[in-house]
Design a protein around this nucleic acid. Structure first.
Lengths: 375, 375
DNA sequence: CCGCAAAATGTAACCGTTTACATTCGAGGG
DNA sequence: CCCTCGAATGTAAACGGTTACATTTTGCGG
């Protein structure tokens, strides 16, 4: 109940090099803190001369506003959170890069957290970000719907990346369209017996790519589509296994579409080991355009996914949600993919009617090794 | 001068779903805010029963402390900043990953900013992080010393990564030791005429690797060391160019040590194009162990740099600096590198005394293509 | 049953901003 | 000369925690 004496401006325990506060600046400039605030935020009317004084004082004291105080007061942190399943890999770092660029341009900072093995851990991280960020970009392709809905209850704008998205804001890769485009490319080259290596069942990207493949196959009046599909889990190893199985099929497919590049690389390796010439005897394509796609031999034809663009879009959407929470209508944007044609894919040799190639003989060395592939 | 009535506990403008505050929890639990704070921070003594009540109230209100208020009060943000030249690439994402893991284990968050073309921009970012973070990890291998010293004036603990470091805390890769170890490996295989592809002159890593190379050469009593060095800028293209120049030397070196993997890949490509067989006619080694090192053919022998470890160390050091600003003595730690032997390196064919191989004939195809390299 | 130390809890100042509202100051109109 | 009005500036109440210090409970020996 005591009246609060203003002790602010006298030299508190200034034992260490304490940073200057707005009070110090005000004192130095001979004005009130309100005026300093007004000058520095430039919204309201202040006499030009006063403004100059304040600015000079701030500069001479090397004044930098305390962001904690500021965000406590205005209830905003000018920071957004990024939650990834794993910070690992080219993939995610590209997303961060895209967001970082867009965010800094708008004066936003980004708080990242990765490596979340399970949904519970992810939600935990989201809670600790509470209050620290104005909104969230969450990438969780492998998470089932329930935890994602849980996320929406966090009373904070959230943009989902590559997730199965019932509602709310989201940005996804056009996996379905990309898969169809790839199928069109293969079809144009003359392929009709196209095998597919699936990704993890609970992965949203994998599912959409599979859907695109199936639609395309149905459109090509291909027989026994199911027989041409093979399970995988997005790892190189699973691609290697799938490659072996698919090459052993009779009639053998003329092309293998792996639903991501890692598996395509595995497929390539297994065909190589089995002495199957790529692309002469078998075409192989992937999805993502990871950096090594250019370096494997033969270099891999694939669908490029611009992850930085994905990040940029996500930030733009989030910013809108943060800025106009009232009028903002949830959106679901899709970013396009682009076909990158390299050497792992060619027209099928002939259109042999049951050209039963007996077994895979040791006839590997035939083709000119695709070296110098680099660049 | 009026006595301040406590309006906190009544429903302020609770128009929206405002988050519960500590006052709400206190009211619900029938205790004071101080008690709630004590329970939640678990430092001081509170009766077990009270504690339960408070915890229950907090839970039922889904209370999450406001971090801005908290850090304003305790003058700490439990957040550290990471400043990178470019968030791009496997390299940096590994560093982030290492820090993220270590930081989360200690309850710290990380604020990332990348893509800084010039020192001024970098310092700008550091200023906007002021107050938002308790300390900084700055990676700036290409920045000259002056701006780095400027950084130290920011009155905030800073750990430098891979920078030319006059003083203060720093973590660096053991570039010098790694280069010497690689030279020892080559020497053990029988190489003595070892060429070197340098990196950018103003890059600290590049300089140290060069230093290691030179010392080793001097130790091997090699003649005309300088003639075996070749400029480069850490890009594939520069490696390609260097490869061509070095292969044309007479007497030709038996091994090429590129000071990073990207350049080694370029060297490989150029030798391939020139029909020089690697490793039969020429050994090639790199530094870093970037992911594609395993995928080029022949797969690349290189020095692995554990970037995640680098990040972890940096965080540990920073934490110490933050925790005991008084007693903390600046340290400069070095993280070791490990030799990864792959296929691009072998014993020189013979030790021919001036075995003047006339010109590079078109005798490329000779060796068994190193496919199946994958995994 | 009292007194007293220790334990538990409460009170309110403080962290550094923003901003609604109050105050001051000058100029211009009556 | 006084009043009014608007522009410029000041005052102090938030924002939501932490914590030194004050106050109330407790437990216990005498």
């Amino acid at each position: 109940m005591t009246s609060r004496p203003d002790v602010r401006s006298n030299p508190r325990r200034r034992n260490r090099a304490a940073a200057a506060t707005i009070h110090d600046v005000a004192a130095r400039a001979g004005v009130s803190v309100a005026t300093v605030s007004r000058v520095l935020n430039g919204k309201e009317l202040v006499r030009e001369e006063t403004s100059r004084h304040v600015r000079a004082a701030a500069k001479s004291l090397r004044y930098v506003p305390n962001v904690a105080a500021r965000s406590l007061s205005i209830r905003r942190s000018q920071t957004i959170g990024i939650v990834l399943p794993d910070v690992h890999g080219e993939f995610f770092s590209e997303v961060i890069r895209g967001i970082d660029l867009a965010a800094r341009a708008q004066g936003y900072h980004i708080l990242v957290s990765g490596s979340h093995s399970d949904p519970a851990q992810m939600l935990g991280v989201v809670d600790t970000m509470r209050g620290r960020v104005d909104g969230l970009v969450v990438m969780a392709p492998d998470v089932t719907l329930a935890p994602l809905d849980e996320l929406r209850t966090r009373a904070m704008p959230v943009v989902l990346l590559n997730s199965a998205t019932p509602n709310g804001d989201a940005i996804t890769i056009d996996n379905y369209g990309g898969a169809r485009a790839m199928m069109r490319h293969l079809h144009d080259l003359g392929h009709t017996r196209i095998a597919f290596v699936r990704g993890p069942q609970h992965n949203a990207d994998a599912r959409e790519r599979l859907r695109g493949y199936r639609h395309a196959m149905r459109g090509m009046a291909a027989a026994s589509v199911k027989a041409l599909e093979c399970g995988g889990d997005f790892t190189e190893e699973s691609g290697f296994a799938a490659g072996g199985r698919l090459a052993a099929l009779t009639p053998r497919p003329t092309a293998i579409f792996a639903s991501n590049d890692s598996m395509a690389v595995g497929v390539l390796a297994s065909l190589m080991a089995a002495g199957v010439n790529v692309p002469a005897e078998m075409s192989v394509v992937g999805f993502d355009d990871i950096p090594i796609a250019r370096y494997v031999s033969p270099s891999l034809t694939t669908m490029r996914v611009d992850m930085a663009e994905l990040g940029r879009c996500a930030f733009a959407l989030l910013l809108d949600a943060i800025g106009n929470p009232a009028v903002h209508a949830p959106r679901h944007d899709r970013v396009a993919t682009t076909l990158v044609v390299r050497k792992s894919c060619a027209a099928p040799k002939t259109q042999p009617k049951e050209n039963t190639q007996p077994h895979r003989a040791a006839r590997g060395r035939k083709r000119v090794p695709e070296k110098g592939e680099v660049s």
